[in-house]
Computed example of a mutant assay.
Amino acid sequence: MCLIIFAYQVHPVYKLIVAANRDEFLQRPTAPAHYWEDQPDILAGRDLEKMGTWMGVTRTGRFAALTNYRDPKEITEGKRSRGELVADALKHKGNVKDYMQSLAGKQDFYPGYNLLAGEGTELYYYSNKGQKLQAVDPGIYGVSNHLLNTEWQKVQKGKEGMSKIINGEQDELVGNLLNMLQNADQAPDELLPNTGVSLEWERRLSPLFIQSENYGTRSSTVMLMADKAIQYVERVFTKEGVSEQQYKMNRSK
């Protein structure tokens, strides 16, 4: 994932609402959202190169999602795939807080990342760049390729869009969030971050929805989590067109 916008405990029905875009090189082999054959309680897409994932949920309502921290100077050779963090959080048999706390001793194992994970009434955020475990309070948040709520224009635009949508027409919640994620307007130069890539790439990476010849938004995902049910919708973008997977599950104990 390169953008996660989420509303936590601010909606009267859905305790967690997530709208997220996964940006990746177009040639990287990927499976769309499905129940994993080797972990049938997990619903997620899958990176077929490293067998991890960027976002997923379990039948019990455990949720996890990740974005990369952009630092072109970081040495990544020999480090592990960040996608295993999400997969491991979903597979972890103990308390999700214990799993998140265990990452503090492994910050150098992975390239820079932001990880969200939670279950029930708990949601946590950890970055191996910020190196501080945070219990998420009720509110609307966004994280892209820096730290949580860094005021990049795409994050601010996503948070404002989320607020407007969840306070609007409830029958169109999923569709409106998916449409928001397809906003491809670039930020003006004066609002671009300086992350160490070229000005051309800062412009290209600034929209919510990224498009370029070899790299871009591969999928958009919306998840609505209520006390007893979860709705999970993924829209996949390929050169051949657009496809969509929709799942509804009752939460098991």
Rank of each mutant, 00 (worst) to 15 (best):
S220L: 13
K157R: 15
E200P: 03
Q170G: 03
Q107W: 09
K154S: 09
E190P: 05
W152C: 01
P138T: 07
A187L: 10
N194F: 06
S163Q: 13
V174T: 10
L205M: 11
M180A: 10
H146R: 14
E151I: 01
Y215K: 01
G142H: 11
T221G: 11
L116H: 13
V174I: 14
L191I: 08
Y215M: 01
Y124W: 15
E160Q: 15
G118N: 04
A187N: 12
Q211W: 07
Q153F: 10
D189E: 15
E169L: 09
Q211E: 15
F109Q: 14
L173F: 01
I165V: 10
K132G: 00
Q156Y: 08
S220T: 11
V155S: 01
E169M: 09
Q153A: 12
K154Q: 09
G168C: 08
E213F: 10
L178Q: 08
N149V: 04
L173G: 00
L147R: 05
Q186E: 15
L147D: 04
Q170E: 14
P111T: 13
G112N: 11
G168A: 14
V197I: 11
E151D: 12
W201T: 00
D108R: 12
P138G: 06
D171G: 06
W152I: 00
E172Q: 14
L199N: 07
Y125P: 00
L208I: 15
A184F: 00
F109A: 15
D171L: 04
G216L: 02
L177C: 12
G196N: 04
K159H: 06
G158T: 13
Q182C: 09
T195C: 06
E151R: 12
L116A: 12
G118S: 04
Q156V: 14
L115G: 08
L133A: 05
I165F: 07
L123N: 04
Q131V: 12
G120T: 07
L177G: 11
K154W: 06
Q182S: 13
E119D: 08
T221C: 11
D185A: 14
I165A: 05
H146S: 14
Q156W: 08
